[in-house]
Amino acid sequence: MQQNDGMTLIVKTVTRISVWMILLYGIYIIFHGHLSPGGGFAGGVIIALALLNVLLAFGRKFTSEWLNISFLHDLESASATLFLVIGILGISLGGAFLANFMNKGELFALLSAGTILTLNIFIGIKVGMSLFLVVWVLAGSKIVKGE
């Protein structure tokens, strides 16, 4: 790891611990989308913030080694596609686009509410990766003065 890249050692050390907690919180929000406030979008934003923390603290070079950016890109497209696939499965199994076709389970249990939990997970991945990649691309572009 490059010591002179990114922010100071204090920030890096704190980030090294906090990034996992933020990620875990994001995953918690996604998985409890059908039970409590939050859901795929909010959790996805938190996941993106965790990754952005690394980008800010350690710099672009380290982040590109730590994360496989093209894999994140594939993950983003794949999650959107899988969302649609579940929607289409709803047509064949549930009678309408995005209709529920899974077991609804017990009320207020973690694994309940049919397809909503699955859809929330895909939304979470999609939103998290999209927001992170948007900032990644913006951070990589150079400011050209003139014209």
Partner: peptide, 19 residues
């Protein structure tokens, strides 16, 4: 719904496999 599904699926499949 296919008026929405078809182009949306195409858009995401393009970004998934046509990279």
């Amino acid at each position: 719904p296919y008026y929405i599904i078809i182009p949306l699926l195409a858009a995401f499949l393009i970004s998934l496999i046509a990279g």
